[in-house]
């Protein structure tokens, strides 16, 4: 049945367009791509400021810190949010949570690939890195690569803390970002927390995704943005995270 539907649809298309056939001679390169590849200055400091500004404009809570201060920043954000549990991908750089879990103030829930959505529903926060960020649109791209985990991890908990390394992981625009991303990897592009304007066009934060998005911009990091978070995030141990109670 399916294959007859296929032949019928293809036959109708061919009848409708005539014998155009393979685009060969009319390659998509013929498309006028005279649009800009970036709209603003691509100076790294300017991009960092632009990203910061656009994230705030879409109501993410933005913090700046350094590599050295990152563990303390993470610990403070979790404490301020009153989080007792935080979900993390198995390959989160061990240092990120070191201070938060010290003294058992916060318990890390490491995703070993078997965490269910129902389990995550009772976890307070989630902490991840990202693949890259787009300054012009205030967008964070997750591609299930290094330090990001599976898609459900950043979806079910109500509070997401996302670490972006500057300038390494920040690009100016979508035309700069797409060539760095691998279509094979499942991607989630995030621009501010979940929102709806369905009720009289009043913007309300948070319907189904995390209602609070906190972004930590770590300045002074090297590395280049790319697929699967190719930025060198603390090479070294893979597998289970720092303290991995389950």
């Amino acid at each position: 049945m399916t294959s007859t539907g296929r032949e019928r649809v293809l036959a109708r298309i061919r009848a409708a367009i005539g014998e155009a056939g393979s685009p060969g001679e009319e390659a998509p390169d013929g498309i006028p791509r005279t649009y800009l590849s970036a709209h603003r200055s691509e100076d790294p400091a300017a991009l960092l400021d632009l990203l910061h500004e656009n994230l705030v404009d879409y109501r993410a809570v933005v913090h700046r810190t350094t590599e050295h201060e990152l563990p303390a920043t993470v610990a403070r954000l979790l404490a301020e949010h009153g989080s007792r549990t935080v979900a993390v991908p198995a390959d989160l750089p061990p240092g990120w949570l070191a201070l938060a879990v010290a003294g058992a103030a916060v318990q890390a829930v490491v995703d070993d690939g078997a965490l269910t959505a129902a389990q995550l529903d009772s976890v307070d926060s989630v902490l991840t890195g990202c693949a890259l960020a787009v300054a012009e649109t205030g967008t964070i791209v997750l591609d299930a690569g290094a330090a990001q985990g599976r898609r459900l991890l950043t979806l079910v908990p109500d509070h997401h803390i996302c670490v972006i390394r500057a300038p390494g992981q920040i690009v100016a625009s979508l035309p700069r970002a797409l060539p760095l991303l691998d279509p094979v990897r499942p991607q989630t592009w995030i621009s501010g927390p979940s929102a709806t304007s369905d009720i009289e066009l009043d913007r309300v934060e948070g319907v189904h995704g995390p209602r609070t998005l906190e972004v930590v911009l770590v300045t002074g990091s090297r590395g280049r943005p790319g697929p699967s978070g190719a930025t060198r995030l603390s090479p070294g141990r893979r597998g289970r995270g720092p303290h991995g109670p389950e």
């Binding site: 787009v134 299930a144 898609r151 979508l174 991607q187 989630t188 592009w189 995030i190 621009s191 979940s194």
Partner: peptide
């Protein structure tokens, strides 16, 4: 670039999901 600005007047909509077939253990 054009769709979010033209529809919800945003630089980018809050969430965009992209997937290719199935991925092991994810989705």
């Amino acid at each position: 670039q054009t769709l979010p600005r033209s529809s919800t007047a945003e630089r980018m909509n809050p969430y965009t999901s992209l997937w290719t077939g199935t991925s092991d253990g994810d989705g």
